[in-house]
């Protein structure tokens, strides 16, 4: 089947199979920042925006993106820089495999709730797993980014 998608600001038409997942579609279009970390929608690595809302692209059919706007980290490089710099400054990138999905979730939170409490922030991001950092360095970067007092 054919779909039309605005991927990172660029309108594209593509032929897909009906069972293709959005994750595989965006990767096939060169958006390699989007990663697969599990098979059950638990890890958050594949987080991208569908019409500016964060979704798990591993469990979203590519067909559902038809006529919609799809945004990956490649499409928000400027917007992501401030937070990415905080992460780098804490050494919180580590292996980096979970970073793109995590950053997309953080930027989505910023849009939805520019001044979250520490609890709201953690709740919102609880679906983004990381095995390297133990989350503490990510927490320090988040506090700097959202202007939250570290506790």
């Amino acid at each position: 089947m054919k779909i039309t998608v605005t991927l990172n600001g660029k309108r594209i038409e593509a032929e897909i199979t009906p069972d293709m997942m959005l994750l595989d579609f965006v990767r096939s279009q060169g958006m390699k920042s989007v990663k697969r970390g599990c098979d059950t929608g638990n890890c958050g690595l594949c987080t991208l925006w569908l019409d500016d809302k964060p979704v798990l692209s591993c469990s979203t059919l590519a067909a559902r993106a038809n006529g919609k706007k799809v945004t990956t980290l490649e499409g928000v490089q400027e917007e992501a820089k401030e937070f990415s710099d905080f992460l780098a400054g804490e050494g919180a990138d580590q292996c980096g495999f979970c970073s793109p999905g995590f950053i997309m979730a953080v930027l989505a939170l910023k849009k939805e709730n520019p001044n979250p409490t520490a609890e709201e922030m953690k709740e919102y991001l609880a679906g983004n797993l990381c095995r390297c950092t133990g989350y503490q360095s990510q927490y320090r970067a988040l506090c700097k980014y959202f202007g939250i007092q570290e506790v």
């Binding site: 390699k32 990415s84 780098a88 980096g96």
Partner: peptide, 21 residues
Amino acid sequence: QAIIKKDAKALLSGKPAYTDD
């Protein structure tokens, strides 16, 4: 010192870097 990782920029901007990429 707390030096930033040499690959931080590439990894945090989602550049192709891993085997599957």
